[in-house]
Amino acid sequence: MNIHPKVTPIYQTSVFKFGSLAELEEYYTAPSHNGRYCYSRAENPNTDELVNEVARLEGAAGGGVATGSGLGGLLAAVAATCQAGDHILCPEELYGGSVVLLTQEMTRLGISTDYVPLAELYDLGRWVKPTTRLVLAEVLSNPLLTVLDGPRLAAACREQGVKLLIDSSFTSPILTRPLSWGAAMVWHSATKYLGGHSDVMAGVVVAADEALGHRLRQVGTNLGLTLAPMESWLTVRGLKTLRLRMRQHSENALAVARFLAAHPAVAQVYYPGLETHPGHDLAQAQLLNGLFGGMMSVRLHNDTAEGADAFFQRTQLFPLAPSLAGVASSSSYPLGTSHRGVPGERRQALGITAGLIRLSVGVEEVEELLADLGQALGG
């Protein structure tokens, strides 16, 4: 019987069978295992399909690894490039989960991290040490949407002989392809836009060159980070609509940002699609397809926890949730979630105040979103 499925089946198996010792030996000695599979911690057809598709979208010749969460991808990237005694540089404007992983966990393993204001990080020679191995930066910072000059930072990293890892979770390959700037790796929390439906936890990191891609896969296997088959299948399903979703997310978000910028209850809107955003020109020149993404943050005039909580309790279409980038809109509270583990004085310096709300704009009818925001803000 010939079976030709249009969609890759789910290989929900932990192991694959061999018919002889010769087949087993061929698996371990042939280049790329000669298309065979052995143990899903190392590789699985569904996981390979996900990595290959993200690598194709990113132009990543080296391939990479899919992991059980977004932070698993960061762990794989750090473990693939750093060892005890090494040093990492990051902008101060960085997702709180990344800060906690680097500061609380990697330091215990002898890998140190310094945080520099993004505007100063481009002068990389001031900050690198002989042990600096990696620079991590976000295309659009979480949560205030500071726009990275990716080509400029990549050039500085090349000059200093340091690898650049870009977190593209807010933008996806539809808006940015950091390897084309000269980054060594691009990392996604695939839980966000790649999966897109708030029903999967996953991370993907892919590399520009084959040696680094091989090391990522090796680390994923050795540390047990590799994503399971079902989650890989779900994420691949999400990728099939990524281009369509990113266009609608971006179109809706621009309308929402313009509405909020004119609302009397809103003190400031952080969205690079607005002409008033300090990074607008850079974003317009650097982001692809004329899109600015679906993420923004809003600071209320009532810059208090009470003001923010009133919004969360009134809204019907932006429920309070700790993640982002699903087809359904949501809101988040950086002070109490993503940056909860960041010291208070540093949060204050970064502008993460009690009245700051992060919005993930979905693909619903935009008129419904605007009406809900208006009533939630008391308008």
Rank of each mutant, 00 (worst) to 15 (best):
N2H: 14
I3Y: 14
K6E: 15
K6I: 14
Y11V: 05
K17M: 14
F18T: 07
F18V: 08
F18M: 11
A22S: 13
A22C: 04
P31L: 01
S32V: 07
N34L: 04
N34W: 05
N34Q: 09
Y39E: 10
R41F: 14
P45G: 00
D48A: 01
E53F: 10
G59R: 12
G59M: 13
G59K: 14
G62I: 06
G63D: 02
G64V: 08
A66L: 05
G68L: 13
L71C: 06
V78K: 10
A80S: 12
C82A: 12
Q83T: 13
I88T: 05
P91T: 06
E92Q: 15
Y95E: 11
V99N: 08
V100N: 14
L102W: 04
L102F: 09
T103A: 14
M106F: 15
Y115N: 10
L118G: 07
L118P: 05
E120T: 12
Y122D: 13
Y122I: 09
D123F: 12
D123S: 14
V128E: 09
K129Y: 11
K129F: 11
T131Y: 10
L134M: 07
V135N: 05
A137R: 00
S141L: 09
S141M: 10
L145G: 12
G150H: 07
R152P: 08
C157I: 04
E159V: 12
G161K: 10
V162Y: 05
I166N: 01
D167P: 02
S168G: 13
F170W: 09
P173L: 07
T176S: 15
P178T: 02
G182L: 09
A183M: 06
A184Y: 00
V186W: 04
V186A: 11
H188K: 08
H188Q: 01
S189D: 07
S189A: 10
H197N: 13
S198I: 11
M201W: 07
G203C: 02
V206E: 00
E210P: 05
R215Q: 08
Q218H: 12
G224W: 07
L227A: 02
M230D: 14
M230E: 15
M230G: 13
T235N: 08
V236G: 03
L239Y: 10
L242G: 02
L242Y: 03
R243Y: 09
L244K: 01
H249F: 10
E251W: 06
A253I: 05
A255M: 08
A257D: 00
F259V: 06
L260G: 04
L260M: 07
A261P: 05
H263V: 06
L274S: 03
P278D: 10
L282C: 12
A285E: 14
G290I: 03
G294T: 03
G294Q: 00
V298Y: 03
V298S: 00
R299N: 06
A305D: 13
A305M: 11
E306V: 11
E306T: 08
G307Q: 01
F311T: 00
F312E: 02
F312I: 06
Q313Y: 07
Q313W: 07
R314W: 01
T315M: 09
P319S: 11
A328H: 15
Y333S: 14
S338C: 08
Q348S: 14
Q348A: 15
L350S: 04
A354F: 03
L356E: 06
V361E: 01
G362T: 02
V363G: 03
E367W: 04
L369G: 04
L370R: 01
D372L: 11
L377W: 00
L377K: 01
G378Q: 02
